[in-house]
């Protein structure tokens, strides 16, 4: 039988602490009351955007450790990533944090792929506390994937705005009163021959759909408060809804779908289709969503982070945009 990539974690590892920080522009987000820290300077007081990116990761990881009442030496492993070349911002932040570290790259799905990986480490009981998460910094990512910041290129309505922000959490053994990882689905790379790098939502929607379908098929009868995708944006999210409607997955007791990217900047039109970037799903999942789980507002949710696995090189060489989506099911007792 073909593997579906779905796993259940019998030990119910709990997310015991999280921290989220964002840049100044993200103040407009309806999620902002749940952000732990909002920087006044998008470069986090550093000389270059990349240094600022690194500083943001370091600060946020420290915050997650402090908020949980731990110390850095309690951390068995840091699993994190970002979108910049060779992930130097995360690598450099890990240099400062000096914890055992492994870089993770699943583009914008890193927020969830790192949590899934952490869950496996916890399940084996070899580790006690694993820190996971992802971040992005608008300027650093734009330069990497698109144009210089000050270049006056017109973005189409499908364009998305890369979030400056990072979200990190600490996964530990089961604790009552903390949200735990019930199960997860590791997605497979999907390519529907989308080529427009200014329309990532359309490219990622099939991957999100595929992963959701696989996860729900393995958890028939489970009722979810909602399923939340990562950064499809308004356009990608309407396409996902169309895919769901025309396939009949709605019979799986889910009637509420949400998308972090589409909701991130509210209805501000200047952000076009919404937010994207590794920091988008990470800040929303481990900020507001985690807080609401903790407060008991939700009982069971499915988080499906999506990532577009392209590079400027692959795009220029005429390759299509392959995409991935990883799902993690969080529960609160």
């Amino acid at each position: 039988m073909k593997k579906t990539g779905t796993y259940q974690f019998a030990s119910k590892p709990s997310i015991v602490s999280t921290a989220v920080s964002v840049g100044p522009l993200e103040k407009v987000s309806p999620f902002h009351p749940h952000f732990d820290f909002i920087y006044e300077d998008e470069r986090i007081g550093q000389e270059t955007n990349e240094k600022g990116h690194s500083q943001l990761i370091e600060d946020t990881c420290n915050m997650a450790v402090t908020k949980g009442g731990f110390q850095l030496q309690d951390i068995d492993l840091l699993l994190a990533g970002d979108l910049v070349n060779e992930m130097t911002p995360t690598n450099f932040a890990a240099r400062q944090l000096a914890t055992p570290f492994m870089g993770m790259f699943s583009a914008c799905a890193t927020s969830v792929s790192s949590l899934i990986t952490a869950s496996f480490f916890l399940e084996t009981k070899l580790m006690d506390k694993v820190m996971f998460g992802a971040a992005s910094q608008h300027n650093a990512v734009e330069r990497q994937f698109r144009y210089p910041i000050e270049y006056g290129a017109q973005k189409p309505p499908t364009g998305q705005w890369t979030v400056t922000g990072g979200g990190y959490g600490i996964l530990s053994h089961h604790q009552t009163g903390k949200p735990y990882v019930h199960s997860a689905t590791i997605g497979q790379v999907m390519d529907c021959e989308c080529t427009d790098p200014l329309d990532m939502g359309s490219a990622m929607a099939p991957a999100a759909f595929d992963t959701i379908q696989k996860h729900l098929a393995q958890n028939k009868g489970t009722s979810y408060d909602f399923v939340m995708t990562g950064d499809l944006g308004k356009n990608g999210f309407s396409i996902l809804q169309e895919l769901i409607k025309s396939s009949g997955v709605s019979s799986y007791l889910v009637d509420n779908y949400r998308d972090a990217g589409a909701e991130f900047y509210g209805n501000e039109e200047k952000f076009l289709s919404g937010a994207s970037g590794a920091g988008c799903s990470a800040t929303v999942y481990y900020g507001p969503i985690y807080a609401e789980l903790l407060a008991g507002k939700w009982k069971k949710i499915l988080l499906v982070a999506t990532g577009a696995l392209l590079s400027p090189l692959s795009f220029q060489q005429g390759e299509t945009i392959p995409c991935i989506a990883h799902a993690v099911e969080l529960s609160m007792e």
Partner: peptide, 23 residues
């Protein structure tokens, strides 16, 4: 899901570029 029919879905749903207004 085959790519061709998916592209059709995308074309239907994706917001059109407002060509006249842009011009």
């Amino acid at each position: 899901m085959d790519a061709e029919s998916y592209q059709k879905t995308v074309d239907q749903i994706a917001p059109k570029r407002p060509v006249l207004l842009n011009c």
